[in-house]
Computed example of a mutant assay.
Amino acid sequence: MGTKPRATDGQQSFLGEAPMKPLIKPNDKPHYHGHRERLRERYAVAGPDAFADYEFLELLLFRSIPRADTKPIAKALLARFGSLAEVLGAPLHLLQEVQGVGPAVALDLKLIAAAGQRMARSEIKGRQILSSWSQVVAYCRAAMAFEPREQFRILFLDKKNALIADEVQQTGTVDHTPVYPREVVRRALELSASALILAHNHPSGDPTPSRADIEMTKTIIDTAKPLGIAVHDHVIIGKNGHVSMKGLQLI
């Protein structure tokens, strides 16, 4: 018996089929590599305002997801949560429910959100708060607007209305936070604060103050005033805006 000749690339092989050739050459880069380079170049030239939310989110995901196309992941995150701010404000466990987002990616997104909060806080630290009101609101929005549960936050001010401390006193449910006026005043005395700005969020998105919000605020004012502690305002933060009780002449 003679030896069968081996099939070459130009010959037929088993059952008459030609050998399959790889669709992608080993040295070819995936299509998204060029896309990433183009996005980076656009950002360098045009800056962030030239980007749609999904494109900006793609850029953020590049370092967290180095070997995959981040566009569908960015679009899936926005479809789930609604906006870039809501993506960054979403809890870790909900972020991980989006396909392609693992624990490390979710944590990176939360770190970006935390960095934004710290930047906003640095804008008001050591400044005369009442003359930097827009920065105060921006900070409260960054810190609270997309929290899934209500938080009651207090900004403690000195005699010059500069920020001494910023603390979350209570965290409650989706529609209620227990607040104890005596604890608010006790903490103000511990910090030698002369004034307070109160803030809390409404996870429902509607910042309209409830009757309970108004009554609680008036109780804190009545408790603090005899001790020389002023309450400048109570700001309620929603996903799409905020309300100042002082601005509404409710206090």
Results as ranks from 00 to 15, higher is better:
Phe14Gly: 13
Leu15Arg: 14
Leu15Pro: 00
Gly16Pro: 00
Gly16Glu: 07
Ala18Tyr: 12
Ala18Gly: 12
Lys21Trp: 13
Ile24Met: 15
Asn27Val: 14
Lys29Tyr: 02
Gly34Gln: 10
Gly34Asn: 08
Arg36Ser: 04
Leu39Arg: 02
Arg40Ser: 07
Arg40Met: 09
Glu41Lys: 11
Tyr43Val: 13
Tyr43Phe: 14
Tyr43His: 13
Tyr43Leu: 14
Pro48Phe: 14
Pro48Glu: 15
Asp49Cys: 08
Phe51Asp: 03
Tyr54Pro: 00
Glu55Leu: 07
Phe56Asn: 01
Glu58Ala: 08
Glu58Leu: 01
Leu59Gly: 13
Leu59Val: 08
Phe62Ser: 09
Ile65Asn: 05
Ile65Phe: 02
Pro66Trp: 05
Arg67Tyr: 04
Lys71Glu: 07
Lys71Gly: 03
Lys71His: 10
Pro72Cys: 12
Pro72Asn: 09
Leu77His: 04
Leu78Met: 05
Ala79Asp: 07
Ala79Asn: 06
Ala79His: 01
Arg80Cys: 03
Arg80Ala: 00
Gly82Asp: 02
Ser83Arg: 04
Leu84Ile: 13
Glu86Cys: 00
Glu86Lys: 08
Leu88Pro: 02
Ala90Pro: 01
Leu92Pro: 00
His93Gln: 15
Leu94Arg: 14
Leu94Glu: 14
Gln99Ile: 10
Gly100Ser: 12
Val101Glu: 03
Gly102Ala: 10
Gly102Trp: 01
Ala104Met: 10
Val105Ala: 10
Ala106Lys: 04
Leu107His: 03
Leu107Thr: 02
Asp108Val: 01
Asp108Lys: 02
Leu109Ile: 10
Leu111Arg: 11
Ile112Gly: 04
Ile112Thr: 11
Ile112Leu: 07
Ala113Trp: 12
Ala114Met: 14
Ala114Phe: 13
Ala114Val: 09
Ala115Ile: 08
Gln117Pro: 01
Arg121Lys: 08
Arg121Gly: 06
Arg121Ala: 10
Ile124Phe: 03
Lys125Thr: 15
Gln128Pro: 08
Ile129Trp: 00
Leu130Trp: 03
Ser131Val: 15
Trp133His: 06
Trp133Met: 11
Gln135His: 12
Val136His: 09
Val136Leu: 05
